[in-house]
Computed example of a mutant assay.
Amino acid sequence: MKRDFGKEYRRDIFKKIGWILLLMLIFLLLGMLIGSGLGGSNPLAVLWPGTWIHMFDFLK
């Protein structure tokens, strides 16, 4: 039995993958905000560019 991998099938698959990636990004941001808030600092500090510069400098 031959499966049809047409445009509609591929579009549905890529749509599902896109939704999964979007949900993963949202949960990552929520996790960072909650973790920062529980850690005792400003929850929005994880969104500041200075925080990210500090993290990347730390990794070097």
Rank of each mutant, 00 (worst) to 15 (best):
W19E: 05
M55V: 06
V46E: 04
K7P: 03
G40A: 12
Y9K: 15
G40Q: 11
G37N: 04
E8M: 04
G31E: 02
L30T: 09
G18P: 01
R10I: 09
F14N: 03
R11L: 06
L30G: 08
I53F: 00
H54K: 14
I53C: 00
F58P: 00
I26Q: 03
D12I: 01
S36K: 15
K60W: 05
L29K: 02
R3Y: 06
W48M: 12
I20M: 02
N42C: 02
G18H: 12
A45N: 11
I17D: 00
W48G: 07
F5V: 07
W52Y: 09
S36A: 07
M55S: 10
L28Q: 11
V46K: 02
K7F: 12
L28V: 12
D4P: 05
A45F: 05
R3G: 01
G39I: 07
M24C: 09
L59M: 13
F27W: 03
L38K: 13
D4Y: 08
L38C: 07
D4V: 14
H54P: 01
K2M: 14
E8P: 01
K15R: 14
F27M: 10
D4R: 15
A45C: 03
L21Q: 15
K2F: 12
G50Q: 15
L44A: 12
M55A: 08
I13Q: 08
M32E: 01
L23R: 04
H54M: 14
D12F: 00
N42P: 04
L28F: 06
V46P: 02
K2C: 07
M32F: 07
K2S: 10
L23K: 12
L59S: 13
K15V: 01
L38R: 13
S41F: 06
K2L: 12
W52S: 13
L30V: 05
K15G: 12
M55C: 04
L47R: 04
H54E: 14
I20L: 01
A45I: 11
G39W: 11
M55P: 02
D4G: 07
L47F: 05
L44R: 07
P43C: 11
H54Q: 13
W19C: 01
